[in-house]
């Protein structure tokens, strides 16, 4: 049986195709401003990998911020449910999954069966999401992909006081003027967002093992700050941004 999970995120669309519960194809594409176009392209891209067509998919489950604007989906599930199902499939010992996407941060506590026990969400404020690191990378004039590596070279901790992405941009500019190194500023940026994510996660009770998923999990500087702040080991799966789509595809297979 072939199922698809579609995670329509704020920034990227992720597709995972399963055959009998095994991943056979996946794709990631920028959503832009035309979600329909992104959807068609993303699906086609994944299907072409394995020589399948849309008609071969028996069930489609959507998740993500745009989950209700996925025409043709048989069902839509919350990111919290999808994350929980996806991560327990990857590693059954995970009890807490933290998901930091472009516009939202989530912490989910789940049981061994991948069922959600508790969750918290940071939403509608860029300070608690990937958009924060993007804005800071722009202010620092470094590519987002390099921000993580940069912060790992930091020699000292510098506090960041602003709790708003817009005010933090001005603070970064002030730090640059005060000749603070880019490395230390990058670390301060990651420490700042990690501290907000940790606080959110603690509200659901952080139980081991802990996993970090979502696009921001690719940022090694952020992972490092979060590890330090939580004072725990954190598993980052190989394709952290696909965990939600994987969960949706698994739920599609179960529901058939």
């Amino acid at each position: 049986m072939i199922t698809a999970g579609i995670d329509m995120g704020a920034k990227n669309l992720k597709v995972v195709i399963l055959r009998d519960g095994q991943v056979i194809a996946s794709s990631l594409i920028r959503v832009g401003f035309d979600t329909q176009e992104a959807l068609d392209e993303g699906l086609q891209h994944a299907l072409a990998e394995v020589g399948l067509s849309k008609g071969d998919i028996q069930r489609v489950v959507a998740t993500g911020a745009g989950r209700n604007s996925v025409p043709g989906a048989d069902d839509a599930v919350t990111e919290v449910r999808a994350d929980s199902a996806g991560i327990t499939h990857i590693s059954p010992t995970i009890r807490t999954v933290i998901d930091v996407g472009a516009e939202e941060g989530r912490a989910v506590r789940c049981n061994a069966q991948g069922k959600v026990v508790d969750f918290a969400i940071n939403e509608k404020c860029a300070a608690g999401a990937g958009a924060f690191t993007e804005a800071m990378a722009r202010a620092l004039e470094v590519p987002l992909e390099e921000l993580g590596a940069l912060s790992l070279k930091s020699q000292q901790t510098v506090p960041m006081n602003a709790q708003c992405a817009v005010f933090a941009e001005s603070e970064v500019v002030s730090l640059i003027h005060a000749r603070t190194s880019k490395e230390d500023i990058a670390r301060a940026v990651h420490d700042a967002i990690a501290s907000r994510i940790t606080s959110m996660a603690r509200r659901v009770g952080v139980e081991k093992d802990v996993a970090l998923v979502g696009g921001v999990a690719r940022n090694k500087g952020f992972v490092d700050s979060l590890r330090r702040d939580l004072d725990m080991d954190i598993l980052v799966p190989p394709d952290p941004e696909f965990v939600g789509a994987l969960g949706a595809a698994l739920i599609a297979a179960q529901g058939a």
Binding site: E103, K124, C125, A126, A131, A135, C164, A165, V166
Partner: peptide, 11 residues
């Protein structure tokens, strides 16, 4: 027009 739905300046 209908107001912009995001409060956050970034969004």
């Amino acid at each position: 027009p209908p107001p912009v739905s995001s409060t956050c300046v970034v969004f």
